[in-house]
Amino acid sequence: MPTHYEFRVAGHLSDRIRGAFPDMVLADAPPETIIFGEVIDEAHLHGVLALIQDLGLHVVALHEVPP
């Protein structure tokens, strides 16, 4: 069952990096950026975290958001 997650990453994201998350909502919350969206399962969660790491971003916080 899909769950919603909030990923908080350090800094402001460029348009190029924002484009890497087409199915997510991004919001500036200086000094962080919030990446919010639906995560289908644990494999998808690990995929999003791997993408964040591949882009060189630093995860400040990760929260499951209740429905």
Rank of each mutant, 00 (worst) to 15 (best):
residue 46 H to C: 09
residue 28 D to F: 04
residue 61 A to W: 01
residue 36 F to H: 10
residue 54 D to P: 02
residue 10 A to Y: 05
residue 33 T to L: 06
residue 17 I to S: 09
residue 58 H to W: 03
residue 41 D to M: 03
residue 7 F to W: 04
residue 38 E to W: 13
residue 2 P to S: 03
residue 67 P to E: 14
residue 13 L to T: 02
residue 2 P to T: 03
residue 32 E to T: 13
residue 8 R to T: 14
residue 61 A to L: 01
residue 6 E to R: 15
residue 31 P to C: 00
residue 18 R to S: 12
residue 63 H to T: 05
residue 31 P to M: 00
residue 37 G to R: 06
residue 24 M to N: 00
residue 25 V to R: 15
residue 54 D to C: 09
residue 42 E to W: 07
residue 24 M to W: 01
residue 50 A to S: 10
residue 50 A to F: 04
residue 44 H to G: 07
residue 23 D to A: 05
residue 52 I to R: 03
residue 18 R to D: 05
residue 64 E to W: 08
residue 57 L to Y: 02
residue 56 G to K: 14
residue 22 P to W: 00
residue 65 V to Y: 10
residue 65 V to N: 11
residue 26 L to E: 07
residue 2 P to I: 11
residue 48 V to T: 13
residue 25 V to C: 02
residue 36 F to P: 02
residue 18 R to W: 08
residue 3 T to I: 13
residue 15 D to E: 15
residue 51 L to F: 01
residue 28 D to E: 12
residue 38 E to Y: 10
residue 34 I to K: 14
residue 13 L to I: 02
residue 50 A to G: 02
residue 42 E to R: 13
residue 8 R to G: 03
residue 54 D to S: 15
residue 62 L to I: 15
residue 31 P to G: 01
residue 6 E to S: 13
residue 66 P to V: 08
residue 6 E to D: 12
residue 39 V to D: 05
residue 15 D to N: 14
residue 44 H to W: 04
residue 14 S to Q: 06
residue 64 E to K: 09
residue 22 P to H: 02
residue 29 A to G: 03
residue 16 R to Y: 10
residue 25 V to G: 01
residue 19 G to P: 06
residue 4 H to P: 05
residue 52 I to G: 08
residue 55 L to C: 06
residue 31 P to E: 01
residue 12 H to Q: 08
residue 20 A to G: 02
residue 67 P to L: 12
residue 60 V to S: 07
